[in-house]
């Protein structure tokens, strides 16, 4: 039981970190001139950034202290008047494109965006082509003309069956 109580803050933290942020809420810790920075704005930027101390988690989803600090920096820069793109660019300047969870749609990483749809199209094309081949009626060899002797033989066999 003591173990459960000990884990409670962690469970709550993970639960809160995983909760979607309601966009209508305007809870603010910092203000941008007169316009407040909403949690949703911070969340939008944070979801694009890799939590640097985690495995495959965004800054928005990680309960780690580093991610909490990074969210604070995002909020502060937004409050200082930077656009979300400028904030993302700040992190790219410091960490490289490695910090982005989605690979950029240019250069080598453009392949990541292009190849999967291409592979699907190619697969569909190959499948369609195979289906067409398989559903075509098997070509029947041309009939050999039946000569008189064969015709007589068939007639006899049919008669004996009856």
């Amino acid at each position: 039981m003591a173990l459960n109580v000990g884990l409670l803050p962690l469970v709550v933290a993970v639960f809160l970190a995983a909760m979607p942020v309601p966009t209508g809420r305007a809870a603010t810790e910092a203000t941008r001139g007169s316009a407040p920075v909403s949690d949703a704005e911070v969340h939008t930027v944070a979801t694009q950034l890799r939590c640097v101390v985690c495995q495959s988690l965004s800054v928005a989803d990680s309960p780690s202290q580093m991610a909490v600090q990074m969210r604070g920096i995002v909020r502060e820069r937004l409050a200082a008047g930077e656009t979300p793109d400028e904030v993302v660019q700040y992190f790219v300047d410091k960490y490289g494109e490695w910090i982005l969870l989605a690979p950029p749609r240019r250069g080598f990483t453009l392949l990541v965006w292009i190849l999967p749809p291409l592979a699907v199209l190619l697969g569909l094309a190959v499948t369609a082509q195979r289906v067409r081949v398989w559903s075509r009626p098997a070509a029947t060899p041309p009939r050999e003309p039946i000569d008189a002797a064969m015709r007589e033989r068939i007639r006899k066999e049919l008669e004996t069956e009856q």
């Binding site: 640097v52 600090q69 992190f91």
Partner: peptide
């Protein structure tokens, strides 16, 4: 304390 210098230097560990 706030982690700003760490991020300014792109520290990830």
């Amino acid at each position: 304390v706030a982690g700003k210098v760490s991020v300014d230097y792109g520290v990830y560990g």
